[in-house]
Computed example of a mutant assay.
Amino acid sequence: MTELLQVTGLGKRFGGVQAVADVGFALRPGEVLALIGPNGAGKTTTFNMLGGQLRPDAGSMLLNGTALGGKLPREIWRLGVGRTFQIAETFASLTVAENVQMALLSAAGRTFGLWQKAAAFEREQALALLALVGMQDQADRACNALAYGDVKRVELAMAMAHKPLLLLMDEPTAGMAQAERLQLMALTRQLARERNMAVLFTEHSMDVVFAYADRIIVLARGRLIAEGTPEAVRHNPEVQAVYLGTGSTYDSQEPV
C-alpha cells in the first residue's frame, strides 16, 4: 500500500540540546502507529514538527508527496492533518453540537458576523459526526457538563470535521480511566479502518499502545531505537532496558 506520510532524517535542536536526531518512519492509510518513549525522548518535539508548531532543523516530512516542513499549523490542517490534544480543546460553554459546528465552519472556510446566528449551520452533519463517536444523544448539553471521557469523544468528532487523511493524537487517553481509555482507542481504530485514515498517537498507557497500535516506534534521547509490531517491540531488549523495564537510563526532568 502507498505510504501516506514519509518522515526522513528529522532533526531539531534547542540550543545545545539535540531533541530529535535523524528520525524517520512511514505511515500508511488506515494504519494506527504509536510513538512511545521515556520523558525527554523527543516525542512531543516530533509531534509538534509534524503539526507545524515547530520547524525542523533537518529532514523532510511528506504528506502524499507534499512537504510539511515550514508550513503553518493551519496550512498543514488544510492539507488533511487533524489533531487532538493532551488536554481536550473544546469550547466549554458551547453545546456539544455547537462545538462540532464550529469545526465544520472552519473546515468550510466560513465566518459569521456577530449579528448572524450560526446555530443552524450544518447541524445535521454535526449530529452525524457525533453519532460516529456515540455522542449524538448529548448534542444539546454544554461541554462543561460532560464527563472527561465524553469531552474527549467530542474533540474526536471535531477533529473528524474536515475528513482528515492523517490524525495526530497527543496523549489521547490522559486523565481517563482504563475502560474509557480502551473504548476511545477502539473507536479511533475503527474510524481509521472505516475511513482509511492514518493515525499517529503518543501515549504513556501501555495497555492502550499494545492493544490498539498496528505498529510502534520508540524514541530515546531523540533517536529512533526500535520499530515494529507490538509483539516485536515488547520483546526488544533495548526497549525493555530503556522504557518498558525498570531503571530507565534515559529519564530526564522535563519531557521534550
Rank of each mutant, 00 (worst) to 15 (best):
M1H: 11
Q6I: 11
T8W: 04
G9A: 15
L10F: 01
L10T: 06
K12T: 00
G16E: 03
G16P: 03
V17S: 08
V20M: 11
V20H: 13
A26K: 12
R28Q: 15
R28K: 14
G30R: 07
E31S: 08
L33N: 10
I36G: 03
I36W: 05
G37L: 13
G37V: 02
G42A: 11
T45P: 14
T46R: 02
F47S: 10
N48Q: 12
L50C: 08
L50N: 11
G52E: 06
Q53G: 00
L54V: 05
R55V: 14
A58T: 15
A58G: 15
L62T: 01
L63G: 07
N64A: 14
T66F: 00
G69W: 01
G70S: 04
K71D: 02
L72M: 09
L72Y: 04
P73T: 13
R74M: 07
R74H: 15
E75D: 14
W77N: 15
R78F: 01
V81W: 13
V81L: 13
I87K: 12
I87R: 08
T90G: 00
A92K: 12
A92F: 06
N99F: 09
V100F: 09
S106H: 15
S106G: 14
S106W: 02
G109R: 09
F112V: 12
F112G: 02
L114T: 06
A118S: 15
A118G: 14
A119F: 00
A120I: 05
F121M: 11
F121D: 08
R123W: 06
E124V: 07
A126N: 07
L127R: 13
A128G: 13
A128F: 06
L129Q: 03
V133I: 11
D140I: 03
A142N: 07
A147E: 12
R153D: 01
L156H: 10
L156A: 09
A157K: 07
A159R: 05
A159N: 10
M160V: 09
A161N: 06
K163L: 09
P164E: 04
P164Y: 09
L166Y: 06
L166D: 10
M169I: 01
M169H: 03
D170F: 01
D170V: 01
P172E: 09
T173E: 05
G175D: 11
G175A: 08
M176W: 07
Q178S: 15
E180V: 05
R181V: 09
Q183H: 11
Q183M: 06
Q183W: 01
M185N: 00
M185R: 03
A186P: 06
T188N: 05
E194T: 04
R195H: 15
R195E: 09
N196W: 00
M197Q: 09
A198Y: 08
V199G: 02
V199M: 02
V199N: 01
L200C: 12
T202K: 00
E203I: 06
S205V: 10
M206S: 05
D207S: 14
F210A: 01
A211P: 01
Y212Q: 11
D214L: 03
D214R: 06
R215I: 04
I216G: 02
I217V: 15
I217W: 00
G222K: 09
T229D: 05
A232K: 11
V233K: 04
H235V: 00
N236Y: 05
N236G: 04
E238K: 13
Q240M: 08
L244V: 13
G245I: 12
D251W: 02
S252F: 02
Q253W: 10
Q253F: 11
P255L: 01
